[in-house]
């Protein structure tokens, strides 16, 4: 049985999401190929070749794949699909856009956002914002899966897999890349950070969000997250949103500041190893989940915490 893993990258660097997806592929078991679709992406292919457990890196280096749009990349994957029993991608915004197209073109269901491998074709996945965990088994010959990257530990980088080019020209595009605007963020990437500090609606404004949350995050070397309420109120960019409809994180330490703990937020962080909650409402649901809870005025407590670290 062979497994194809679609690499996540920006043409210059391989995202850690790929090493975590390879870990899920190892749990399934089989010969693992990584597909790098991009333009001038040789460095990415080299990095993918170092991932433990990878048998071969296949590289489609073509201007058509420069922005990894869903239409050409899904055509490419379908073109290669006959060689594989499983096709995996990380459940990133790119993976989530590409892989359902692949599944539909192969006339199979996709198993979305798996959190554990239970058998060669059986997987655990959260539904209802993580309020329930479903175990499902695929019955089709080709199994198409997106992987929740926070649920798998990255494989090491001691390998040296061969790299082979793939020649494939997709159809003329009906969707074209116009522009990309990167979110302003200096700290570590939210999805892969060891520590995350998140702010909620209680911060009250974008200025106060930045004034209270950022110094603590800087002191801890943490990525900054936000609740949906904080994002909706314009205190933080959507890219920082942690929750069912934002990012799902599982850091070693998650510090929730002024977040009451709506179920859709808890869905994004409840698998953190240690959770700290700071909020003025002692009845806030977040305290039921927190390992350490501190009730009080966040505008006093958080600067004091920042100061004492």
């Amino acid at each position: 049985m062979s497994i194809l893993v679609l690499a996540e990258h920006d043409n210059s660097a391989l995202s850690p999401a790929t090493a975590r997806t390879v870990a899920a592929a190892l749990a399934i078991g089989g010969t693992i190929d990584v597909l790098v679709a991009g333009a001038d992406c040789g460095a990415v292919a080299d990095a993918a070749a170092r991932l433990d457990g990878v048998a071969r890196v296949r590289v489609a280096d073509d201007a058509a794949f420069a922005h990894q749009l869903a239409e050409p990349v899904s055509e490419l994957v379908v073109h290669l699909a006959g060689d594989y029993g499983h096709i995996l991608a990380p459940a990133t915004t790119t993976g989530k856009s590409v892989l359902p197209r692949v599944a539909a073109l192969l006339d199979v269901m996709q198993v979305s956002d798996i959190t554990a491998v239970k058998g060669p074709k059986a997987f655990e996945r959260p539904v209802y914002a993580g309020a329930a965990l479903q175990t499902v088994e695929a019955t089709a010959d080709t199994v198409v899966v997106t992987v929740r990257i926070s649920a798998f530990d990255a494989v090491a980088e001691t390998g040296a897999a061969p790299i082979e080019p793939v020649a494939f020209t997709p159809a003329a595009p009906k969707a074209r890349f116009v522009s990309r605007e990167a979110a302003a963020s200096e700290g570590p990437e939210l999805a892969n950070a060891r520590i995350v500090v998140s702010g909620g609606r209680a911060l009250g404004s974008q200025e106060q969000f930045n004034a209270i949350i950022k110094p603590l995050a800087d002191k801890l070397g943490a990525a900054i997250g936000a609740s949906r309420a904080a994002v909706d109120s314009g205190y933080a960019p959507n890219d920082w949103q942690v929750g069912q409809t934002g990012k799902v994180v599982a850091p070693d330490l998650y510090v929730a500041v002024g977040i009451s703990g709506a179920i859709q937020h808890l869905a994004g962080m409840k698998n953190a190893k240690v959770i700290v909650a700071i909020d003025k409402d002692p009845d806030a649901p977040i305290f039921k989940l927190a390992d350490y809870g501190l009730v009080g005025d966040l505008f006093e407590l958080v600067p004091e915490l920042t100061e004492s670290l």
Binding site: A70, S74, K96, S97, V98, L99, P100, R101, V102, A103, A104, L105, Q110, S112, D113, P126, V127, Y128, A129, Q244
Partner: peptide, 15 residues
């Protein structure tokens, strides 16, 4: 928000 699959729109576009 029930099965959280995030795939129907992409599948429809592909079909």
């Amino acid at each position: 928000i029930d099965d959280d699959s995030n795939q129907t729109a992409q599948m429809l576009a592909a079909l």
